[in-house]
Design a protein around this nucleic acid. Sequence first.
DNA 1: CCAGCCGGGGAGAGCGTTCTCTTGACATTG
DNA 2: CAATGTCAAGAGAACGCTCTCCCCGGCTGG
Lengths: 335, 335
Amino acid sequence: MTTAQRPTLEAVARRAGVSRATVSRVVNGSTTVAEPIRKAVRRAITELGYVPNLAARSLVTQRTDSVALVMPEAATRVFSDDQYFPGIIRGAAQELEEADKQLVLMLAGSPAGHERVERYTTSRHVDGVLFASLHGADPLPGRLARLGIPVVCSGRPLGGTLVPYVDVDHIGGVNRAVQHLIDSGRQRIATIAGPQDMVGGIERLTGYQAAMTPAGLPEWVAYGDFTRESGVAATRRLLAEHPDLDAIFAASDLMAHAALRTLRATGRRVPDDVAVIGFDDIESAAYTDPPLSTVRQPIQEIGRRMTRQLLRLAAGEPIEPAVVLPTELILRDSG
Amino acid sequence: MTTAQRPTLEAVARRAGVSRATVSRVVNGSTTVAEPIRKAVRRAITELGYVPNLAARSLVTQRTDSVALVMPEAATRVFSDDQYFPGIIRGAAQELEEADKQLVLMLAGSPAGHERVERYTTSRHVDGVLFASLHGADPLPGRLARLGIPVVCSGRPLGGTLVPYVDVDHIGGVNRAVQHLIDSGRQRIATIAGPQDMVGGIERLTGYQAAMTPAGLPEWVAYGDFTRESGVAATRRLLAEHPDLDAIFAASDLMAHAALRTLRATGRRVPDDVAVIGFDDIESAAYTDPPLSTVRQPIQEIGRRMTRQLLRLAAGEPIEPAVVLPTELILRDSG
DNA sequence: CCAGCCGGGGAGAGCGTTCTCTTGACATTG
DNA sequence: CAATGTCAAGAGAACGCTCTCCCCGGCTGG
């Protein structure tokens, strides 16, 4: 049961008949070690099963080789079945794996949780911090950035904070979707907007308006919070106020899905009577009835790019303050 | 731009006019410090904004205050829209937050990734390892356990490895579901089984058989991998071989959803002609058409319990080698 | 009244790395 | 051939913390 003492640099050095410094050089890939010695050290390492002690290394290098990914646990969308959360994680994990760094996940749900995240991240326990799906104008990213800690956000941070971010072209994507509705003859196009304390929510609404206003069409808006429940309620509100609407753009696929069902429940046919387009392109979008047209955003790529930017930042390289990835209109049957 | 030097124990000690040892005692909550001194130290800490250096602490305590959560990235279900992945994470994160420990997420997708996970976890860089959703008979958990590293799996590990685990009562839940189908008069009940290299896949099939065999009913099985795509294919196969089936139990909601659609595409009505019951109770189960009956498993609770067990193990406390959580039959409209 | 205790606090030795200096062995040059 | 340069490798000092002694002063009991 007792654990064998883990071999240290010292042990490897003794075994290979060299100094600790040389072993360290070999481990860290310095070129200034003669081949035979390098070989001997390598053998000693494998024979002893030596693995560097990261804590000791961190202590002297002042690096931790880990980055934090902070997500607001409360965010309904994060834990519903759209794939934002796993997508970001997966992208980040892939990119970090290549850099041989660790991913520390922090959920900043409760105020206590948020405080904990702040304490942890400000204390240089990680080499950088990734923020996903921020709500409102969280001051934390800006504060960290001012402390000189590398920070990258998914989605442009609200509140004028100057923090590098990676986002998708919400406005352009939505604009294209709504334009498509207009082009196919729809005249009474409503939207189910997302929460207005998140960039995604705000900009998708802007995209809708950017298409409607120039066309001189009336703008009908109901607000949801990206979830199905809110989508049902919003659709009902829209139908109550505008029974004759002939299209709905929903700011999330979950809400679009809810719209689909609610429309059908009221006897409307999709897309014959009402066209519906969503946003996200979640996996189940292809499996709704009818299959949902939607604006696809490359979630996993967001995670990758965020991470890449962060690693650059941590390495002291310059980065562009904003990366905006394209969105794509996916036309299926609903609109 | 230059980062202010972080204050150390030393600095706090000087400021408070005591020794490092005393500050350490205060920080770690030792009782043998007189109140006035304790107060002085506390003040010095806040004035200087002192935060302990975790690396230095780890170096001497041999603890890291972090645990790894390992997930097979390749697992289709992990990144599809069922909520297994986020659920486990959330449960684990909540429990770890209370213990003030960090969650290090590792995706063991590629062989290289798996090797990386092994290297990292065997090297005592974490206080314990959580394995989620294992495929086949992975030797890693057993190996770690033998090294004396605390390990807990979600789902009974295959291959006879003796590692503590937390699982749900697959067999009981499925048994109840199929029994319900039988009780409501169904006679030709097929099943879409999950992958047979995962406990969940195996046991859900066992549960089906455990209900069918005693009833003397024919057992019709098609295999899928928990995804919608595989569900479509499996349903088609079942229909081709047994056009007269009157019920399907699917080992995942995703496959059940696919069955729903495929059945309808062939002109069958659910539940009138064919009843369908799934497994998981994912969020969208209530939003399928018709709403899906299913066996609910408490995913988040699995995450919590795994973590609690792991923390006990890490603290040297004894734990029960297996925790099995109950499942619940949720009857909606599909069966 | 003194030995013995005990609680509060300090001194100092590590923990396992990295990294700067320094040394020593050759090779190169004028 | 001496002086200089180059390169490989070692010595040893941090890094910031915990924890085991150890000491000091005051209190108790015989």
